[in-house]
Design a protein around this nucleic acid. Structure first.
Lengths: 257, 257
DNA sequence: CTGGACCTTGACGTTACGTCAACTTCCATA
DNA sequence: TATGGAAGTTGACGTAACGTCAAGGTCCAG
């Protein structure tokens, strides 16, 4: 138990002080190498000994730790470099942001579970050009008209499991090729880009349920890729979306007049 | 950009598929070593190539990742070992617990900031025998009487900064010694234990503001250490608290009759 | 003197990659 | 054809805060 080093100040072994503070000896060694807490004395055999001041300092460290502060921040506080209240305030903001992220994630998981339960293959809808038919139903109706949505939905449901999978693979392949093409230094009127634009046209023709793809529809869609980041994201972000839009416009001017 | 391996199935390089999916090539290599996603083909030069099926699988992985699932769980889902919905439900519970912990931590940080602002040295009061004078005011009054609380509070405030620090060091030293003694196999009536009981008595006499420490008060306090885990925690938990109580009772029977 | 408890340093594991480092391969251009 | 740059590869370290061996010294009671 307690020993007196001969100078009247009581001191304890590493295990004793660890238990007293409700932690482990490993943690104490860790704090030492981290520069947070030095033993008050080290025996000739290398044993660490701690006194009352150490115990107080340790309590303080553990309090801040349990509030979630990192060892670096705690070191700043202990050295007086940082004000305790300021450190806590900063920390609080981090925690609040963390909770926000967590809340959003929880909501996402919940809706995903809900959708899965309602029979979605999970993610097909998500991937259709960045559109989730169920989630964005209202928006789609507003943007393309009620009739267009219903037609698209019928077509989509009519594809069947296998058909949807194939369709998505084709969509994704097309998007990936767009991204790769945008990364090269070929212009939107290059043969490669125009080939992609043609595939894009065919792809849309297939998706439109037999409805024709007009000049206005085609170029308008291109504009939307740029305007709406949720769409553009599927084509490699802003720069990629612009490339797609330009290539589509060139194609339309050339073949859809 | 895209290449055709000669079998009609389109494929992409590692960078291309990474960009298309909105991630990095490093991540793809990582998923491979993690057993989540193999390239559809590996060139004679070691280059990885991915096809549309890979892209779909990757999208699925990334979706689950962004919901917060770990790679292990995702592997289970992909292999069909785990039901997707079941995995998400389990995950949701983890997230909810996480948020609970976060909420509690946020509350702790907030009250700590509040107390610090109101001039607390931060943690002195916390440590006084597990009591926070401000937080547990009502409880103390109920347990020990209004008068006793006021007297203790006056005494405490009268100590001054330096005095409080010294007092706390003494308290902590005493508690640590109790814990160490409880860990040895000496009984509550051993010389060591009785020496501690005497120090405990002196300590209480000093804290009581000149008020005498009666037999009932001393033994009652010992009982409370066992009954109230918040007190007992300072003496090493339940077993430690029992040891302290027993030693205090022996001491009281011997010297406080 | 000896067994067991306690101490030391050193090093690996944890999570999902980010970030060099060293080296090879591919491809377009001079 | 030589070459320079972009892109590919494997290997390894870093991250936060310790937990958990491993191998070996120290202390103490019987």
């Amino acid at each position: 138990m307690r020993t007196d080093s001969g100078q009247g100040t009581p001191e304890w072994s590493i295990q004793e002080i660890a238990k007293a503070a409700g932690t482990t000896s490993r943690t104490l060694r860790h704090y030492q190498t981290a520069g947070l807490l030095q033993p008050s004395r080290v025996g000739h055999n290398g044993y660490r000994y701690y006194d009352g001041a150490c115990l107080l300092r340790l309590q303080r460290i553990l309090l801040l730790r349990q509030l979630g502060l990192g060892l670096d921040e705690i070191r700043g506080v202990l050295q007086g470099r940082t004000d305790t209240i300021a450190a806590l305030r900063t920390h609080l903001e981090v925690l609040l942001e963390e909770r926000d992220r967590l809340d959003r994630r929880i909501a996402s998981v919940r809706t995903t579970i809900g959708k899965s339960e309602r029979g979605a293959t999970l993610m097909p809808e998500e991937m259709f050009d960045g559109f989730d038919h169920t989630q964005y139903k209202d928006e789609v109706e507003q943007r393309w008209g009620k009739e267009a949505y219903a037609r698209g939905d019928r077509w989509w449901r009519g594809l069947g499991e296998e058909g949807r999978r194939a369709w998505l693979q084709r969509s994704r392949a097309l998007q990936a090729d767009w991204i790769a093409a945008a990364g090269s230094d070929a212009g939107p009127d290059s043969a490669d880009a125009q080939d992609l634009a043609r595939r894009q046209f065919d792809w849309l023709a297939g998706a439109n349920g037999g409805q024709e793809v007009s000049y206005a529809y085609f170029t308008g869609l291109g504009e939307m890729y740029v305007a709406d980041p949720r769409f553009g994201a599927n084509y490699g972000g802003d720069a990629g979306a612009r490339f797609v839009r330009d290539a589509m416009r060139v194609y339309a001017d050339r073949y859809l007049v």
